[in-house]
């Protein structure tokens, strides 16, 4: 059951991006996913000559009928992986998507296990320190005396 849930999560992360790569994008959509190589921002936040050049390239490839995946592949072949604002949902790039999730799951498991162990230890603890039987009998006698 747990394996099935993990597989479903993987499918949810990978399949939508695969579908998105097969269709024609809009310029505005890609402007938010592609970096300007000289300004450290995405294209939609830059009007530098380098950013304008890439916007023209993207517009030309959209007009030529290229899919989102084809356009991104072309950009990566020209400028390297750093041209993409987010790592791709395949190959080594998958690590960047899965590692934080794995980290959160592992941290939650550690915290959960710690909390469980702590609560179990508390259940096993006696209510208070054990009294000396002689002292306890004396206290009982005293209390009985006051009750009468």
């Amino acid at each position: 059951m747990r394996r099935l849930a993990l597989l479903l999560m993987a499918a949810l992360l990978v399949v939508p991006s695969a579908r998105a790569d097969d269709r024609q994008p809009t310029l505005a959509e890609l402007e938010g996913e592609v970096m300007c190589p000289v300004c450290g921002t995405t294209l939609d936040q830059s009007s530098s000559p380098a950013a304008q050049q890439i916007k023209r390239l993207i517009a030309a490839r959209i007009a030529a009928g290229d899919t989102k995946g084809q356009i991104k592949a072309r950009l990566v072949s020209e400028y390297g992986q750093a041209i993409l604002a987010a790592p791709e949902h395949k190959g080594f790039g998958l690590l960047a998507w899965w590692l934080p999730i794995a980290g959160i799951v592992a941290a939650a498991a550690v915290v959960g296990a710690g909390a469980w162990r702590w609560s179990r230890a508390r259940e096993r603890e006696p209510d208070g320190p054990q009294l000396d039987p002689v002292l306890e009998r004396r206290i009982d006698d005293e209390l009985a005396h006051w009750d009468t």
Partner: peptide, 10 residues
């Protein structure tokens, strides 16, 4: 020459 951070066609 080293053409850098550029589109090779341009």
């Amino acid at each position: 020459g080293v053409d850098t951070k550029d589109f090779s066609g341009d």
